[in-house]
Amino acid sequence: MARQSSRGGSESKKMSSELFTLTYGALVTQLCKDYENDEDVNKQLDKMGYNIGVRLVEDFLARSNVGRCHDFRETADVIAKVAFKMYLGITPSITNWSPAGDEFSLILENNPLVDFVELPDNHSSLIYSNLLCGVLRGALEMVQMAVDVRFLLDTLKGDGVTEIRMKFIRRIEDNLPVGEE
């Protein structure tokens, strides 16, 4: 076959992120067809994200060699610098800590999920990337942290940046088998 097929690594990486972006777009489109209102779509995206998160955390822990976090600040660092980097290729910045240290924001300059996306006017309450909230919630639940995750700002809605607010609710006590930490 004469066709040139020597493509650089960066190009194939870009392609697979486009595969992901386009697939996510197709998913949101389908959900908008399946459900009558945006609230239900948001809910469904969150639920799907949760189911992904509870699985993804295993992959993450196996690949990243990250141990148990001792406080929420450490958790924030791992999420922004290791997890987002690994799965989305971006490093959000961490800001707006609450005085109690139980709340912070992730600021995403460029959200890869929204490449090629424009929200039509009739979907003003759709939280397009809401899957991410579910992923974060599900993943953290598997490491014994109950966390509230929501979008505060979204570039798709005209905001300058995308902001995800994370609020620590409580540590989940589970019944560990005797002798295990």
């Binding site: 392609m15 486009e18 386009l22 777009g25 197709a26 998913l27 489109t29 389908q30 399946d34």
Partner: peptide
Amino acid sequence: KLENMGFRVGQGLIERF
């Protein structure tokens, strides 16, 4: 539905590719 989603993604990908 899954097939249709794939169709849309295939269209977009090939255009980029």
